[in-house]
């Protein structure tokens, strides 16, 4: 049954977490620990951070993230289509041409609008 496989995945997940945490724990045990104020300061060329660290970023990042989500959602449709294509006919290809055509033209629009240019 399917769920069996996912029990393995779950175990693997736990194993990966353990695999990542174990060395850190070991390092805690065997590594030297000498705390000092200077040492724990953020590494910005030896000068303390000026102003706020968590600055506000430009909207460009957000537009890219948004386009990423749009195209990621598009794959949500592409995967089932590709998986089921064998039992469908050529019409499925045509439907996908229409679907992708719209999205591609959306991309072309964004391109022509200049938002794809990273400055």
């Amino acid at each position: 049954m399917i769920i069996n496989n996912y029990i393995f995945i779950g175990l693997l997940l736990l194993a990966a977490i353990a695999f990542a945490l174990a060395p850190i724990l070991v390092a805690r045990l065997i590594a030297p620990r000498k705390r000092s104020r200077t040492k724990s300061e953020p590494y910005e060329c030896g000068v303390l951070t000026l102003g706020e660290t968590w600055v506000r970023f430009r909207i460009q990042y957000y537009i890219f993230a948004l386009m990423f989500v749009v195209f990621d959602v598009e794959t949500l449709f592409l995967f089932p289509w590709a998986a089921g294509y064998a039992s469908l006919g050529l019409f499925a290809l045509v439907e996908m041409v229409v679907f992708l055509g719209f999205l591609l033209l959306g991309l072309v629009y964004a391109w022509a609008k200049g938002v794809l240019r990273w400055v």
Binding site: L13, A15, A16, A20, R28, A31, R33
Partner: peptide
Amino acid sequence: LLTKEDLVPRGADALVHLAAPVLVIVSAFL
């Protein structure tokens, strides 16, 4: 690497700081 000191910078979000590399490792493992 094991014998290097385990540093978390002051002001850092300690929990997230630890969780981030774990997440990356988990992704690669899975």
